[in-house]
Write a protein that binds this DNA or RNA. Structure first.
Length: 347
DNA sequence: ACTATATGTCCAC
DNA sequence: TGGACCTATAGTC
């Protein structure tokens, strides 16, 4: 269940584990069999993440430029949707190459083991794929199994270009143009909460980053985009960049500032005027302390204690604090709080 | 064994 | 706006 940070992490894993290699493609499940057969044995020329989309460029020769427009180059386009996942297995070097602080055998989101069949310990070449594996990619030092994707298809260069042109700026891409986000938001009557989930407006943000970014901006999800100042939208963008980067680096979404992680301590602190030492294991923030509002409906807000609300917006649940996120003005009185360097996630 | 749930998207009405 | 789709897992009976 990935947002953009996961896809960029996956791209890094493919790059480290397979790029430049001749790879085998197969489709144990069968639904990608024709395509896998056609591309089997080609060279993985390039790996690219755009928002929640992964693109694997393949060609018959290693020295092809994937972006030069050669018809020999194909792009495997994968979108994980809600349920898709990649499961990795490989030798020591392969695992170490892609697992940036992640579990050794996998980089995808769902924690399921590869079906080992009768594989002897350590021999990833003998791992039998699950029947649901849509695509298996095998390289010299490891393999990756794809299950449950919303999309797994072959694009040509034009289709790839059309995808990139359609998507809004991706906070994790160096070539992102946030002007487009500012324009789209400030022209729209749609609520900012819905806009942030629209991949044509901004690519890679999902339900967690949406809810959390709006809390950090102290912004009501239902405020129309056109009511926001440019500075406010810039602030959201500048906050999302380090937030997503942290997620891509660690594989975990953490949006709470350290001093806000222990709501009970904060309530005591406020009522008694004492300060508790809230230190915890540095490095790993437990899930229940990672978010301000996501999945925290019916629980008290970490900052003000008001019960966090939830509502269905276009089929997805949005979470927000009705007190902290109640501002409905065109100016951003809190805009200086958006100095990204003040947040713990600034690189 | 069954059910509910999930960080997503598309299409028909 | 509602349903379809793709799959694994945690919880319940």
């Amino acid at each position: 269940m990935p947002e953009g940070h996961t896809i960029h992490r996956l791209a890094a894993a493919f790059d480290a584990g397979f790029a430049g290699q001749r790879v085998r493609l197969s489709s144990p499940q069968g639904r990608f069999e024709t395509e896998a057969r056609r591309l089997d044995g080609q060279v993985l020329l390039d790996v690219e993440a755009v928002g929640k989309h992964l693109l694997l460029a393949l060609g018959p020769e290693a020295n092809l430029d994937p972006l030069a427009g050669s018809p020999a180059v194909s792009f495997v386009h994968v979108h994980l949707g809600l349920y898709g996942s990649w499961t990795f297995a490989g030798d020591e070097g392969f695992a170490a190459a892609h697992a940036i602080g992640a579990p050794r055998r996998r980089v995808g989101e769902t924690e399921h083991a590869v079906d080992d069949g009768d594989a002897e310990a350590g021999d990833w070449r003998r791992i039998v794929p699950r029947e649901t594996v849509r695509l298996r990619i095998t390289g010299a030092h490891g393999l990756a199994d794809l299950t449950g994707p919303t999309a797994c298809e072959v694009y040509d260069a034009e289709q790839r270009a059309a995808l990139l042109a359609r998507l809004g700026p991706d906070p994790l891409r160096a070539d992102a143009d946030p002007e487009r986000l500012f324009d789209r938001v400030r022209r729209s009557r749609t609520g900012i909460g819905a806009l942030l989930m629209n991949q044509d407006v901004i690519a890679g943000v999902g339900n967690i980053y949406r809810a959390e970014a709006l809390f950090r901006a102290r912004l009501d999800p239902f405020v129309p985009g056109r009511d926001l100042s440019r500075g406010m939208v810039e602030g959201i963008w500048e906050d999302l960049v380090p937030l997503l980067a942290y997620g891509a680096r660690t594989g975990r979404i953490v949006t709470t500032e350290p001093e806000h992680r222990d709501i009970e301590a904060r309530i005591i602190e406020r009522s008694r005027g004492t300060r508790q030492n809230g230190d915890e294991d540095p490095g790993v923030v437990p899930r229940e302390k990672s978010f301000y509002v996501y999945h925290r409906h019916t629980l008290p807000c970490r900052l003000c204690g008001t019960i966090v609300r939830s509502a269905d917006v276009a089929g997805r649940t949005v979470f927000w604090c009705p007190r902290c996120q109640s501002v409905r003005t065109r100016r951003a009185p809190w805009s200086r709080e958006h100095d990204a360097s003040a947040w713990a996630y600034a690189d």
